[in-house]
């Protein structure tokens, strides 16, 4: 059954029920947000670890972190995605078969989360390093002298005190994460951008669907910016120059 898309109005084309393609776009948006959220979370974990290493690790750890950030900053995400999607599974399978395990497969979702987490980790390291440096040393020393466990100091003193300085950077990183998910379209992973492309290819209404996807991205950006502003106000309660 062929649908006559040519004579449908924009509202019909964008409706959530087929033959409209709005539902496909929203599904794509959800997938994009999932990849972005997971990658962002991984990035924050890497960033916290990396910042701690850069501040208090040995010279080797510090230099290795510099190598990591340099590579991530210089190599396009698109190339990293190809590496994660094509080269990494092959490498893992070679290693696994030597060790006598079966083959594994990395799908588009996992590759996307991995790459975005890897990239975000490098930038988050810098954000957290700067933010942690803004915590007065005296506060941490005071906690030390009370006999607090270092981990406890980290989550009771360091993290709450550095958040006001870290939130603007983190907000920026989240926006980058949501936009970077679009690159997964290149390896054929159906997130929002590729969903829009498929919808426009099927209906021949290229302009409409690509603009609609742009509108969705813009909405995510604007809503996130508001959320982060609220968060920034919240975490900087009680700071002197908030």
């Amino acid at each position: 059954m062929a649908t006559n898309y040519r004579e449908m109005s924009a509202a019909e084309l964008l409706s959530l029920e087929p033959p409209g393609w709005g539902g496909a776009l929203l599904d794509g948006l959800v997938v994009s947000l999932q990849v972005a959220l997971l990658g962002y979370a991984i990035g924050i974990v890497i960033g916290l670890g990396g910042a701690t290493l850069k501040r208090s690790g040995g010279p080797v750890a510090r230099d290795l972190m510099s190598v990591y950030t340099t590579f991530v900053r210089a190599i396009p995400e698109l190339v990293l995605i190809l590496l994660a999607y094509f080269a990494l599974p092959e490498l893992l399978n070679n290693v696994l078969s030597v060790a006598g395990f079966g083959r594994i497969e990395i799908n588009g979702f996992a590759a996307g989360v991995l790459v975005i987490g890897f990239v975000q980790g490098a930038y988050a390291t810098e954000v957290f390093r700067g933010a942690i440096a803004s915590v007065p040393v005296g506060h941490i020393e005071a906690a030390h002298s009370f006999g607090m466990h270092p981990l406890r100091i980290f989550h009771r003193i360091t993290i709450p005190e550095m958040l006001p300085a870290a939130i603007p950077g983190l907000s920026n990183l989240w926006l980058i994460a949501t936009k970077d998910t679009a690159l997964l379209a290149v390896v054929g992973f159906t997130e929002l951008t590729l969903a829009a492309r498929q919808a426009s290819g099927a209906t021949k209404h290229y302009f409409l669907f690509l603009l609609a996807a742009g509108g969705l991205y813009l909405m995510v950006t604007l809503v996130s910016a508001q959320l982060f502003k609220w968060l920034e106000n919240r975490v900087s309660r009680g700071t002197r120059y908030a």
Binding site: T193, Y206, L218
Partner: peptide
């Protein structure tokens, strides 16, 4: 600035090439 910074550049490129290009 908001529009450019709020959407992925891949999508912008496709809007120009496939979208405008088809019109």
């Amino acid at each position: 600035c908001t529009l450019i910074r709020g959407t992925p550049i891949l999508l912008q490129m496709w809007v120009l090439y496939y979208g405008l290009g088809s019109l």
